[in-house]
């Protein structure tokens, strides 16, 4: 995935989930990949630096509240709170757009409600991309039954745009099925279990990134085959009827993690987003390249548990011309 230009508003991904669900593990994987073929400058906000697994050689500078990595990523401590920390990042981005983060990732505390944390993504300079909630595949059933934390975890899952089930290596297939059906009863979001390393960036940031200005990333069919996430594109017949478009988006099967694009509506260009179960259509005030206009990009989870409606059938139902 190539993200080169710094967007006007930094997309914010909130990473929630109970204690030990695997949030930091995911962040560590992302940071170690961020310098690879498709470099992306990530800012990570965490409560506790100590748990981020940083190779000393990898650190280019360090203060009490910010660690800068040699691949352009930064880790920021949340000791001063969300508002002050985000404001500092915004001021830095304004002062030096060339090094500003392209993606911002917040690791919430295990009992925080990610939906509430996500509200900080509306501060100037930021935009809410998505809420990802991690679920501990081994513990979830017990946790949901727990007197103290069951309600908290239910609320967390209920606000997710994507649920990632971790520790699937520790459980049997039938236990995984029980866990995913539990999650499905609590959340309309797509569920992915144990994301493989290969497409982590696509999974975490791809579902948030906007606009879809970049051409489809060049991957060989071999690479495509190993991915857990499928990327499809459909061209809509334009101009589209907004109501019909909305109905179509709402009918997407649960395996669809992200739909994005800019299309011609009756009066204006429309920005089309579906993040997890959330559909949003807004007027798009900017220009868009001719090749991009009318193309809708869809990311879906290939092995989505219990997807009962096939993707191709839904893709075939795209809204008719106005």
């Amino acid at each position: 995935m190539a993200i080169n230009a710094t967007p006007l508003r930094i997309p914010v991904t909130v990473l929630g989930g109970y204690l030990g669900a695997g949030k930091t593990t995911l962040i560590n994987q992302l940071l170690s990949q961020a310098g690879n073929a498709d470099p992306v400058r990530i800012a990570v906000l965490v409560n506790d630096f100590g748990t981020i697994n940083l190779d000393a050689a990898f650190i280019s500078s360090q203060s009490d509240s910010v660690i800068e990595l040699s691949n352009g990523c930064i880790c920021c401590s949340l000791a001063d709170g969300f508002a002050a920390t985000l404001d500092q990042i915004h001021q830095r981005a304004l002062a030096d757009p060339a090094t500003a983060p392209q993606q911002l990732l917040i690791e919430t505390s295990g009992v925080a409600l990610p939906g509430a944390v996500a509200q900080y993504a509306h501060l100037p300079g930021f935009e809410l991309a998505s809420i990802i909630v991690m679920a501990d595949g081994e513990q979830l059933e017990d946790q949901l039954a727990d007197r103290y934390i069951g309600d908290t975890i239910r609320t967390q899952l209920g606000t997710a745009d994507l649920v990632v089930v971790t520790k699937t290596d520790l459980i049997s297939t039938s236990n995984l099925e029980t866990t995913t059906s539990l999650i499905r009863s609590l959340s309309p979001a797509p569920i992915i279990s144990a994301p493989p390393d290969s497409d982590l960036q696509l999974l975490v940031f791809g579902i948030g990134a906007f606009p879809p200005s970049s051409p489809p990333s060049a991957r060989t069919s071999d690479q495509q085959a190993t991915l857990a996430i499928a990327s499809n594109r459909v061209r809509l017949v334009q101009p589209v009827d907004q109501k019909a478009l909305e109905h179509w988006l709402e009918a997407a099967p649960p395996s669809v993690a992200r739909v994005k694009g800019v299309v011609e509506g009756e009066k204006a260009l429309l920005r089309v987003d579906r993040v997890g179960p959330r559909v949003r259509i807004q007027v798009w005030p900017n220009q868009v390249a001719a090749g991009i206009l009318g193309t809708i990009e869809i990311l879906s989870i290939k092995a989505h548990p219990g997807a009962n409606q096939t993707l191709s059938q839904w893709l075939g139902d795209s809204p008719p011309k106005l």
């Binding site: 969300f82 508002a83 985000l86």
Partner: peptide, 29 residues
């Protein structure tokens, strides 16, 4: 059209001026 929760709107659709919880209060930095 501000998207944040915690920014209630009046009947005309404009924010009432109330900002609920720190995330919304911080909008008035």
């Amino acid at each position: 059209d501000h998207p944040a929760e915690g920014v209630p709107k009046d009947p005309t659709g404009f924010p009432t001026g109330e900002l609920q919880e720190p995330a919304a209060m911080a909008l008035a930095m």
